[in-house]
Simulated assay, not measured.
Amino acid sequence: MVRYQSLSALFRASRRLTSPATCFSVRQFSSSLLLPKTTPPRYFPFSSSISRFYSSSSSPSPSVRPPKSAGSNGDEEDTFEYKTTDDVEVIEDWEEEEDEEVESYLGDGGDGGGIVLRDVPWGEKVLSIAAEVLKQSEEELELFAFKTSPRGYIYVRLDKLSNEYGCPTMDKLEEFSREFKKRLDDAGAEKVIPEDLALEVSSPGAERLLRVPEDLPRFKEMPMTVSYVEETNSRKVVKTAVFLLESIDAESDNCVWKLADVKENRDPESKGRPLSRKQKDLRITLPFTDHKKINLYLD
């Protein structure tokens, strides 16, 4: 059976709980290092409660298997307690992604999407297992990002095409995680992959980087934070503004942007009044190659 960094599944809202583009994640571990809190329920727009599974064992050693009990059919069953809490602490020994402090880029296996296997010998196999699980799912889910670590960690980010923000529900992430874990267990028992792996399943959220021009039509109705290159006095400088996509000209490889009516674009002295007519009529045409970075805008 595949052993995880803990046999707990922590479902938590990501960094931006108050945003409509909330990103959920499911983590699988191999020892119970998380203690539930008894804080009163908190509510966030467009987020759901945080639930988790945790083992009754508190052994911190990842090499110790969880306690088992015999089921009615004679098979071994995990002895888990299933509880729900609205506030949990993330265990400290989980391997955060090594490039977390480095600026994201397209294809990095994280916020930039793409597949990064880091030359681990079992990477292609676990990727194919994930693809099989997605293929059999009835949901409109796709792999946004997939990354493996030499230390035995698997990071998966699932994109739901029919969702405005691309975020699957917590239940769907849990469902994928359960099936993926089961198949990893089977492959580990057959010695096809290592038995000591850790898994994190999440949604991209608003931090995702958007590809130009492929991803732009999908989010055309949403404000985007756009960093772009502009030539000023024979010098190229990088500027950032919040835009709405006006159009894409595939023949000339240009995007046409207009200012979004958000506080970042308003005159600080206007006391919250909307954009002026001049600002609303402003259009900026940028070649595809002059776009440095685009994210969904979080108010």
Rank of each mutant, 00 (worst) to 15 (best):
S61L: 08
P168E: 03
I248Y: 05
T85P: 00
K271A: 10
T79N: 14
L17G: 07
K147T: 05
R52C: 11
Y165S: 10
V102L: 12
P67R: 03
L7H: 15
A21D: 15
D281F: 05
S203G: 13
I129N: 01
R157C: 08
F219R: 07
T289A: 13
N73C: 07
S234K: 15
R65S: 05
E96P: 13
K83I: 09
S137G: 14
T79Q: 13
S227E: 12
E101V: 11
E214V: 05
L245Y: 03
E214I: 03
L296D: 02
K239N: 13
D290P: 09
S32P: 13
S51K: 08
A198L: 12
E200W: 08
S51E: 11
E96W: 08
I284N: 07
L173D: 00
A131D: 07
F288I: 05
R283P: 12
A250V: 07
P223G: 04
L141R: 01
E89F: 12
K263Q: 14
D119N: 15
I193P: 00
E231S: 11
T240S: 11
A189D: 14
V2K: 01
A187G: 01
S55V: 06
V156I: 15
K160N: 05
F80R: 03
V192I: 10
A13P: 00
G166K: 01
R211L: 10
S47M: 02
E164H: 02
G205E: 01
V102H: 10
F53Y: 13
L244R: 11
S63L: 10
P62A: 04
T39Y: 03
D249L: 06
V256F: 02
K181I: 03
S276W: 04
E230S: 13
V133E: 00
D249N: 13
T232N: 06
S25N: 14
V237Y: 05
G74A: 05
T39V: 08
N295L: 10
